[in-house]
Amino acid sequence: MTKSLLGLTAVLSLFLALAGCRGERVTIVTTTSLDNSGLLEEILPHFEAEHGIRTRIVAVGTGAAIQMGRLGETDILLVHDPALEQEFMDEGFGALRQTIVYNDFLIVGPDALPAKTLADALGLIHGNLTFYSRGDDSGTHARELYLWETFGYDIDGFGGWYKETGQGMGSTMNMASTTAGYTLTDRGTYLAMRANLHIGVAYENPEDEGLHNLYSIIKVSSEIRGGDGEAARVFFDWFTSAATVNMIGEYRVDGERLFIPLEE
């Protein structure tokens, strides 16, 4: 018994030691919305094949992503909160930043809202329909708060129809789906999850700049991250190259484009 336990421990330790081996590797912290879209799984193998550098993705909310950047836990950030990103750069944590692509936010729910404008749509929801807010300081949450504020609403006065989940986009959209509620989501996550949802598009307007969702790549400063940052630099150059941006622009889920290059 003792012998076999010792043997098992030895095998497990060996396994852990092997798993810990590392070659050159780039750590990418990204938002859940980007991770849910399936884009990175599609394009990163191209990078690994071209440059022989392995990648590792950690998906968290934008707030946590920025925090991990500050702590030097990552080489690259892929995020979508321009104000927070600017702050991060101003504080000297980022070496390089470029906004690459955008898509749009839309409101999903059990029924299409009979609204011509975003203001109408929010007006129909306010006080009448169950609305789930991310409530987690994410990029999407920041945008939602901005929109309510822009159209003259005061969140603090909202009643029981307005529910803050404090969870990621996927969980929050599932909660809306389960209870026939409404929520604001990025198009990428919606398309990736559409097959399993009982709710659909309630309001969309890709022309409305208030609903535009800008994605940026940030290379964390080498002084913060440690190391020479060479692999991260290679990744940044590859990600922002015309060929890669083109590839991202062509990425489709169910025949729909998820991201539109800023150049277009």
Partner: peptide, 27 residues
Amino acid sequence: MLVGGNIKGETRVMTTFIAMNTSMGQF
């Protein structure tokens, strides 16, 4: 988290509060 949904003022408890703040980077 799953059955309560961590809704502010309704179903938020200590552990879901911790999970939420961790995901927000507020360690």
